[in-house]
């Protein structure tokens, strides 16, 4: 599979589908056991690490959305904006209108998705660096918009004292909820990836004009990817609002949007679990090296440059790169 992966878009949708589905189910079961049994068992009673892992799961969930927009060939630097929107939706509904968190969580995803729909429809006409620039600007717009929202968004002081749902009282509950959310996210993105829609996405990444000439309604498909991505960002933001019990216009900056991209890249853009691997790796490593957190941005920067220079296809491509070296040495 490893070597043929790049050209496997069509194969995955037809020929090797049954075998791949079995592999997928097995891989997913392993992932579920890891997140729902092994990790909680290892860190039971260790609230600090459960919080760290829960945060990593939520960041991975938001990054999965970004991954989906990468799969249609768009560089999406707007995920921070949608996380912010999701956070505010939950904050406002919970504190002012007495919504329960579990009612406002899907609403946060839906509203973020609707905003993604309204914004995405025009801006998805842009490609390449143009799309990257406009999504970067969107992250800034969201911050400014909530900053200027007057009493509705509480301007710079943000919304604090968001009640934490009774079901999510302990850090273990929060971790498990985040992990379940992440697994759902993996399933959603995986479903897209192996379905004919996923094949359409990959076709669009390789050439939108070509895809359009085959009769694919590219405007609808790219909007679909962006809306799902935005909705996932909104849900992640809502969960974060519940975990941290506050949200500010500056809760998510351009750097956060960039980090979501970094997680995808670090893991690898060819694998659905790429963003999961990337975000857990970075976040866990940086917690372990807590002494150097002062240098976090510097290390992120160096890491980004090193990965681009030496592992441009992400950490998950390491086995392939290593076997490439071996073959060359053998030859």
């Amino acid at each position: 599979m490893g070597l043929t992966r790049q050209g496997s878009g069509v194969n995955a949708a037809t020929g090797g589908a049954a075998r791949m589905l079995a592999h997928t189910a097995l891989g997913f079961a392993a992932l579920a056991v890891l997140f729902l049994l092994i990790l909680p068992a290892l860190f039971a009673g260790n609230g600090y690490w459960l919080t760290v892992l829960g945060n990593a799961a939520l960041l991975a969930f938001a990054s999965l959305g970004v991954w989906l927009t990468f799969s249609i060939g768009r560089i999406n630097i707007a995920q921070g904006a949608f996380a912010l929107i999701g956070g505010y939706v939950t904050a406002i509904l919970d504190t002012r209108y007495g919504f329960s968190f579990f009612a406002s969580l899907p609403l946060a995803g839906i509203i973020a998705g609707l905003v993604g729909y309204a914004v995405g429809w025009p801006i998805l006409r842009l490609k390449g660096v143009y799309f990257a620039m406009i999504t970067l600007v969107l992250t800034e717009v969201a911050t400014y918009a909530f900053l200027n929202g007057g009493s509705f968004t509480n301007a710079a002081s943000g919304i604090t004292d968001i009640p934490r749902p009774r079901l999510l009282a302990t850090s273990l509950d929060l971790y498990l909820a985040s992990a379940v959310l992440l697994l759902i996210g993996v399933v959603i993105v995986w479903r897209f990836h192996i379905s004919p829609v996923g094949a359409v996405f990959r076709a669009m990444r390789q050439g939108e004009e070509l895809a359009a000439s085959l009769g694919i309604d590219i405007a609808r498909y790219r909007l679909l990817a962006f809306v799902v991505s935005s909705g996932m960002g909104g849900i992640a933001g809502a969960m974060f609002a519940a975990v941290q019990q506050n949200v500010f216009p500056t809760s998510y900056s351009v750097n956060d949007s960039i980090n979501f991209m970094l997680y995808c890249f670090l893991g690898g853009l060819e694998w659905v679990v790429g963003p999961v691997v990337g975000s857990f790796l970075l976040i866990v490593v940086f917690q372990l090296l807590s002494a150097i957190q002062r240098f976090q941005v510097l290390l992120y920067a160096i890491l980004m440059i090193v990965v681009m220079l030496f592992l441009p296809n992400g950490i998950l491509s390491l086995p392939r790169v290593v076997s490439g070296w071996r073959n060359r040495r053998a030859a």
Binding site: I258, L269, L298, Y300, A301, I302, M304, I305, M308, L309
Partner: peptide, 21 residues
């Protein structure tokens, strides 16, 4: 060496963060 246009862009983001920090 890169196959995707995103690679050089993310590298540029990396250099920006590097200079920032």
């Amino acid at each position: 060496s890169s196959t995707r246009e995103e690679n050089s862009m993310l590298l540029a983001v990396g250099t920006a963060l590097l200079l920032d920090s």
